[in-house]
Design a protein around this nucleic acid. Structure first.
Length: 337
DNA sequence: AACTTGGACAACCGCATTGCG
DNA sequence: CCGCAATGCGGTTGTCCAAGT
């Protein structure tokens, strides 16, 4: 289809000239030329395609992700965990809860959650059953509000290991990772921020003072030992699969000092941790239990070296940043923004 | 009373890891 | 060692409900 000189001129004008007239006219010339070449059905198809392509609402007519079509990946590579078209979703009914509870109490999970729903007579995905059991139906689940003691543990661990909710939850009997995560996101984070905004708690002391037992909790048996001068931070990256080697607490010593550390954080008083002359750290090392828990967790990998996963919403890119920030500026303000 | 807003939490999703043949 | 299925995990979204307008 040889283009006429006039059409070529318009096209080139459109590309190279800033003239609004040529900008307007050239596309129409092209479309007119196309129309003479393509059958009308093709144009209808093309128009429809453009309509869909430029309109996100038409691309995805499903307002709720509940009804979102399966992503392409699930149709090609990775097999879905269950037939989503034939499983019930959404909130569990009391009858479903009873069926699942009865089945698990009588037969256990059998180590196979995928096959369980069929055996238990449930039209649910195995993953959904597992989640329901672990987060809600398990007999040892603790429902109800979190105690101040739990607040302290969560905050201490979050500061030290970040959002590894399963590890944190493992230190709170009866609590699930989902529980802890929701509690942190909806309440505890705000609670701590509010405490820092009252100015009653200098950041150089204990941000958790408000939450710690006042009475009749036992008084601090002994005052904390005098802190070595800042900085006390060892800056080497911590190894994969491990918690950071030194965490410590030039800025928040009292949360640990006045409050007994959670079991996984054993106190190794006045340990000299690194390079003899300048880098000293007091504080908390990992118990064997913690190492097991940590090794079992999959969150810290060589790739992120723990840094990227740590305090992701806080703007800290490394342990060094965080620890430096704690003493240099008001960290909690940016922490929870 | 009707509607809006925001909090709380249950549930889902997709990716990473683990375990097994 | 490899590939696949099952499981674990953390981030995100949906739903319910109470309080406010």
């Amino acid at each position: 289809m040889p283009a006429t000189k006039s059409e070529l001129f318009h096209l080139l004008s459109w590309v190279f000239s800033p003239s609004p007239f040529s900008l307007l006219s050239a596309p129409f010339h092209l479309l007119r030329r196309l129309a003479t070449l393509l059958p009308s059905s093709s144009l209808v198809f093309l128009g429809f395609f453009l309509l869909i392509a430029v309109n996100p609402h038409l691309r995805n007519p499903y307002a709720s992700r509940r009804f979102r079509p399966l992503p392409l990946a699930s149709k090609m590579g990775r097999a879905p965990c269950c037939d989503k078209a034939n499983v019930k979703r959404g909130p569990w009914s009391p009858e479903e809860d009873a069926a699942l509870r009865d089945y698990v109490e009588r037969n256990g999970t059998g180590g196979n959650w995928i096959a369980l729903p069929q055996k238990a007579g449930l039209k649910r995905c195995g993953k959904s059953c597992r989640l329901r059991w672990l987060n809600y139906l398990r007999p040892d689940i603790k429902h109800g509000g979190f105690t101040e003691e739990e607040d302290n543990i969560i905050f201490s661990l979050y500061r030290n290991i970040g959002s590894r909710w399963s590890v944190i939850a493992s230190q709170l009997p009866g609590r699930t990772d989902n529980d802890v995560k929701n509690y942190w996101n909806t309440k505890l984070k705000k609670k701590i921020l509010a405490a820092t905004e009252t100015n009653t708690i200098p950041l150089s002391s204990n941000p958790l003072a408000k939450f710690q037992h006042s009475s009749p909790s036992p008084p601090a048996p002994t005052p904390p030992p005098p802190l070595p001068p800042f900085p006390l931070i060892k800056t080497e990256p911590f190894p994969a699969g491990d918690l950071p080697p030194v965490l410590f607490d030039s800025a928040f010593p009292y949360a640990f000092e006045f409050y007994p550390p959670p079991p996984m954080l054993q106190h190794f008083p006045d340990t000299i941790l690194a390079d003899e002359a300048h880098v000293v750290s007091r504080g908390y090392g990992l118990s064997p239990l913690a190492e097991d828990v940590s090794a079992a967790s999959s969150s810290v990998t060589m790739e992120n070296n723990g840094d990227a996963a740590f305090f992701p919403d806080l703007g800290f890119t490394s342990w060094t940043d965080l620890l430096g920030g704690l003493t240099a500026t008001g960290p909690l303000q940016s922490l929870f923004s």
